[in-house]
Design a protein around this nucleic acid. Structure first.
Length: 501
RNA sequence: GGGCCGUUAGCUCAGUCGGUAGAGCAGUUGGCUUUUAACCAAUUGGUCGUGCGUUCGAAUCGCACACGGCCCA
């Protein structure tokens, strides 16, 4: 505490503007409690606007409505002060000539950014602007730091991410993105509950990280002297619940992956995963189409949306293509070009896709797909028949054991969802885990661990089940037309700044 | 990991050929007081991202580093 105070003392004189405001705060402290908390807000700006902005000036004079509102001062022009109350602006009329000398001094010392509470009568100005004629006002919180430019706002992307609160004060667009995010998440919960799914919470700290091929974060539990991992996916726990008889479950929460940052990747991100017993992967494709259509309809208000220059109409069925068909049609190939490992290596080299010749056929095929096809898939497309080697938890396709009953949904060249019929054969699963463990031993730190408790669960019997994960951040990017995952995360991960003291 | 671009006042940005740092906004003082990016007058404010180098002299040229953005892998 002492140390903090010392630092606080030291950072005085950051600049004149802040020093001047500190002076003002000090003189307030001399007179009274500088941070009063007894003001009761009786109206929201948004309520006043919706109730009275349609009324005529004379009507309002007759009604003589009294209002008690509070908010942050974001504009001052002469006797007019505009406050922002939860993003809604309302104008106040505060003419110092109509106050006592003491109150006039108080008014004069108000700054942009201060939070005030006021009481007065609602009226309309000659310019037809709804306004509160302030009879009494009280400074509730002094703002020591000046707000960004009143016209240009805060445009520096780094500052917008690092000081999100400032971004939210001055950029209504940014507020809107996070309101839509919240509505989407609320809608998804409602949607799954209506379908009879139960929301559950499974461990975020796991002894064996499973459910996805990704590098985990490692932490340590001191009392047990045990290394633990932040989960890369909840999948294996959710399927244990299906074994336990919770046949329709979903979890909507954070996953953690120890990988780089990009416009599509943040180390912690939000994932929806859901599992339904007695369903197949094609049932989930139908559900996914309906989910996207419903989100667009309910949250955005239209089944058509535009995203970074593309238009997507979710009232239309999504196209469905196998991995092989997609590569063939987007790279101008024939089925013979991917039929064997030798052929696939030659094809990769022809397409200038860098691969490792020790990789399996399936992995080479997927590398070609990811490098040459995925980014070209603009309109919503389900890609199916993923190779078994890259799908260690998915059921084999009937009569075609080298591929799985799996799909991914690609929109705008990005993976939005990944689902499959679950592998419920414990012996096949054990072999797949062994294969993953072998890859891990040979240096692939994204490969899965062998999870023997999960095998035990499967041995008790997992009913035929289908499951899916949907990346919520990317989904929100799509519906808010934002180019970077940082735009839809309130506090995206940033490198620490130097000289921050 | 590689390439390109950016970093100058609280915010948004100029800064010519290397020659002693500029504007608007906000801030301060005064005026005006039913304005709409309010207006009028005066005025304060800078470790030019950090470090090293070249030079008589560096915001400007060179090198390295940091952070951010975009593109590629």
């Amino acid at each position: 505490m002492n140390e903090e105070n010392n630092n606080y003392e030291k950072q005085e004189d950051e600049n004149n503007l802040i020093a001047q405001r500190r002076e003002k705060l000090n003189s307030i402290r001399m007179k009274r409690g500088a941070f009063p908390n007894s003001f009761k807000k009786e109206s929201k700006a948004v309520e006043l606007v919706s109730a009275y902005s349609g009324k005529e000036k004379v009507e309002l004079e007759e009604l003589a409505v009294q209002a008690k509102v509070a908010g942050r001062i974001i504009r001052m022009r002469g006797p007019f002060v505009v406050i922002s109350d939860e993003g809604t602006q309302i104008q106040l009329y505060m003419n110092k000539k109509s106050y006592s000398e003491a109150m006039a001094d108080e008014l004069k010392s108000l700054d942009l950014g201060d939070i005030i509470g006021v009481k007065g009568q609602v009226f309309k100005t000659n310019q037809d602007e709804l306004t509160v004629r302030v009879m009494e006002f009280e400074l509730l919180t002094k703002s020591l730091r000046p707000l960004p430019d009143k016209y240009k706002g805060l445009t520096d992307t780094e500052m917008r991410y690092r000081r999100r609160y400032l971004d939210l004060i001055v950029n209504e667009d940014s507020r809107s993105v996070f309101k839509i995010r919240s509505r989407i998440i609320r809608f998804i919960r409602h949607y799954f509950e209506e379908l009879g799914f139960m929301e559950v919470e499974t461990p975020m700290m796991q002894v064996i990280p499973g459910g996805a091929t990704a590098r985990p974060f490692i932490t340590h539990h001191n009392a047990l002297d045990q290394d633990m991992y932040l989960r890369v996916a909840p999948e294996l726990y959710l399927k244990r619940l299906v074994v336990g008889g919770f046949e329709k479950v979903f979890e909507l929460n954070r996953n953690f992956r120890n990988e780089g940052l990009s416009t599509r990747h943040n180390p912690e991100f939000t994932m929806l995963e859901f599992y339904q017993a007695y369903a197949r992967y094609d049932d989930l494709m139908d559900l996914t189409e309906d989910l996207f259509r419903s989100i667009a309809q309910t949250v955005i208000g239209s089944t058509s949306i535009s995203y970074q220059g593309s238009e997507y109409d979710f009232s239309q069925p999504f196209s469905r293509l196998t991995v092989h068909n997609a590569i063939e049609s987007y790279c101008g190939l024939h089925s013979a070009d991917l039929v064997s490992k030798v052929a696939a290596i030659a094809t990769a080299s022809k397409l200038d896709v860098s691969i490792d010749e020790s990789w399996s056929l399936g992995k080479i095929v997927m590398e070609i797909f990811e490098q040459k096809v995925e980014s070209q898939l603009d309109q919503p497309t389900f890609i199916t028949e993923y190779p078994i080697e890259v799908s260690p938890l998915a059921r084999r396709k009937e009569g075609q054991p080298e591929v799985t009953d799996r799909f991914e949904l690609i929109i705008g060249g990005r993976e939005l969802a990944n689902g499959f019929s679950e592998l419920n054969d414990p012996e096949d699963q054990a072999e797949r885990f062994l294969e993953q463990a072998a890859q891990k031993n040979s240096g692939d730190n994204e490969a899965m661990h062998y999870d023997s408790d999960y095998i035990t669960a499967l041995e008790y019997g997992l009913p035929p089940t289908a499951g899916e994960g949907i990346g919520i951040d990317r989904l929100v990017m799509l519906f808010t037309n934002t180019p970077s995952i940082k735009d839809v995360l309130l506090f995206p991960h940033m490198r620490p700044q130097q000289n921050s003291d």
